[in-house]
Structures are given as structure tokens and as C-alpha cells.
């Protein structure tokens, strides 16, 4: 391997791994069990897993069609649409949270109507957590699925059409199975991003144990008063996400392989 590639690669790996090593080294291992037994930890973890999973589900339902429109349709202004869809990637999540307030908050454009007509408020609820996480995480899914769609051989869709499949049937029976590995990868990425979401969540959903306090929020607040507890919580988050990713890789991504060369 050429040194101009190898050396930066090793440096890069060290840069990514050392902070995690730091967490492991500084973790209060003897205190680990009592810390984990705190009811708030389980509560936050459950809420995190639930909301990240729901956010991923919503992202799949809305994001895969967006990706299809971007990759397959001949709609004018698709590049503008793509830019808009990816805005949450560069927007500071806290700003995203404020923006969600402006639309879905009690005083927001849509939220005001919901509040006045149905006495429905979204902020400070678990729904708000899912919305905030979806807002931030969905672009990862869209970009991943769009890439998979572009890489997939569109002639399979031609073949399906000549076999009597309309566009919806073609999408369901041919396109989607073909890009399944890409969709799965995008969903995992989306889920991981949702699991770690902090800024938009704490802004739009607030922070209340059991309702809106996800793990990252718990970590941040623990950091204010009890850094060791924060490290423990971080390790739990780290462990859960690593375990989930490994599991999905074996069970889901590995099996599909690459059907389209």
C-alpha cells in the first residue's frame, strides 16, 4: 500500500477511535451496574429505541418515494428538490427545532390550526421527538436510496413494463426488491442518526423523563451534574447502536448481497 494513502488512513482511524477509547478508559466500571439500574436510564433507552425506530419507519414511508422521484421521474426542478431535501443535513439541528416550532408549534402555521380546532399540541410530546428525529435523519435515507436507485439497472423496470406491470407494480415487485440493500443501508444510517439526535429534539420536544428525554438528552444533562453518569450513559448508547448495526449487518444486509452487478 502506498504511504500517502496508508499514513493518513491510519491517522484518520486513530482520530475516530481514540475518543471512544477515552470513554472506555475513563468509564467508572465499578459504578456501572448501579448507574445502569437507575430507572431513568432504562426509560431514556426505551424511549430512544422507540422514537428512533418510529422515525425510521416514517422516513421509509416518506423518504423512499422522494428518492424515487429524484432518481426516476422527469419532474422539472428535481435538483432544487434535492437541495431542499438535503437542507437538514447542513442545518444546525437546534435551528431545525426552532423551524419545527414555527410550523408545528402552538403558534406555528399548522400547529395553531391543530391547537385551536382539535386542542392538539405537538411540542413536548413523544410525537414531537419522532418528528424532530425524522426531520434530521430522513435525508440520510433519501440520499442512500436515491444512490441505490441510480445504481440499479433501470432496464429491469423496462422488462417489468413489457410483462404487463404498471409503474406502481413495477416499483413494488421489481425496483424495491432490487434496491433493498440500499434501502436497508439507508434505514440503518437513518436509525443511527435518529438515535443520536439531540439539538432538534431538545428544542422542539423539550426534555422530560419518560416522554421526551432520549438518551442523548440524558447524557447532556448528566454531563452538567455527574460526568461519570454521562460516560456510562454514552457507553450504553454506543453499545446498543453497535450491537444493532452488527445484528442488522448479519441478518439483513449480508443476506441480500448484491443482486445487481
Amino acid at each position: 500500500m502506498p504511504a500517502p494513502l496508508l499514513v493518513p488512513a491510519l491517522l484518520g482511524v486513530a482520530f475516530l477511535v481514540l475518543p471512544l477509547v477515552g470513554l472506555l478508559v475513563r468509564a467508572p466500571w465499578s459504578d456501572l451496574l448501579p448507574q445502569l439500574a437507575e430507572p431513568q436510564v432504562g426509560q431514556a433507552l426505551r424511549l430512544s429505541l422507540l422514537s428512533a425506530t418510529l422515525a425510521t419507519a416514517v422516513s421509509l414511508v416518506l423518504g423512499v418515494p422522494i428518492a424515487w422521484v429524484l432518481a426516476r421521474s422527469t419532474l422539472p426542478g428535481r435538483s432544487v428538490l434535492r437541495a431542499i431535501v438535503t437542507v437538514p443535513l447542513v442545518l444546525p439541528p437546534v435551528v431545525g427545532g426552532v423551524a419545527l416550532f414555527l410550523v408545528l408549534g402552538r403558534q406555528g402555521i399548522v400547529g395553531r390550526f391543530l391547537y385551536e380546532q382539535f386542542d392538539l399540541t405537538i411540542p413536548f410530546t413523544t410525537t414531537a421527538v419522532v418528528i424532530a428525529e425524522t426531520f434530521v435523519a430522513m435525508p440520510f435515507l433519501v440520499i442512500s436510496v436515491e444512490g441505490a436507485l441510480r445504481a440499479a439497472d433501470a432496464r429491469f423496470e423496462d422488462a417489468a413494463a413489457t410483462l404487463g406491470a404498471d409503474r406502481w407494480t413495477t416499483f413494488r415487485r421489481v425496483t424495491l426488491p432490487l434496491v433493498a440493500p440500499g434501502v436497508a443501508a439507508g434505514a440503518v444510517l437513518c436509525w443511527a442518526r435518529a438515535l443520536g439526535e439531540f439539538g432538534a429534539t431538545i428544542t422542539f420536544a423539550g426534555n422530560f423523563p419518560g416522554t421526551t428525554q432520549t438518551m442523548p438528552l440524558a447524557v447532556y444533562l448528566a454531563l452538567q451534574s455527574n460526568p461519570e453518569a454521562a460516560i456510562v450513559l454514552s457507553l450504553v448508547l454506543l453499545g446498543v447502536s453497535l450491537a444493532t448495526l452488527l445484528l442488522l449487518r448479519d441478518r439483513w444486509l449480508g443476506r441480500s448481497g448484491s443482486p445487481v452487478a
Binding site: 432496464r155 422488462a159 417489468a160 413489457t162 410483462l163 421489481v174 426488491p177 432490487l178 433493498a180
Partner: peptide, 15 residues
């Protein structure tokens, strides 16, 4: 259209 097409590289659905 009531037609059938055989493509050059068969394009059988891999899944």
C-alpha cells in the same frame, strides 16, 4: 400492450 420481449442479456429479475 400484449407483447413479450426477450432482451439481449435476458434481464431475468435477480430477486
Amino acid at each position: 400492450r400484449p407483447l413479450g420481449v426477450v432482451f439481449q442479456d435476458h434481464l431475468l429479475f435477480p430477486h
